[in-house]
Amino acid sequence: MNEQASATRAPATQPAGDGWTAVCRQRDLTPDTGICALVGGKQVAIFLSRRGDLYGISNYDPIGGANILSRGIIGSVGEAVVVASPLYKQHFDLRTGECLEDAGHRVNTYPVRICNGQVQVKVR
């Protein structure tokens, strides 16, 4: 429900014809941290791991009920790469969006890539 709360806002960045939207420069990302981008009215949390991998998930924490996942700590649980919600510390798998503590909760994932020094997100 709340994930659509920001759908009324005009998209900050218009997608190019191929569905990818550039949101910032590569050097705007700091390894091991996340940022949030507004794409097509959706809040997308984008993470760059210390290994250099990129991930995109919804910024909305369905358990805490706030748009804050981009501000969580990145880590690993076994082989899974996760972000810990800064509110109540549940872990969300950055590849699948699944909540490790509560399989009933899952957040959307979004493809992210670097293209010509730009960070691009695809929102379906």
Partner: peptide, 10 residues
Amino acid sequence: FINADGGDDN
């Protein structure tokens, strides 16, 4: 937002 001004309208 890295790419927009303003706050969270949620």
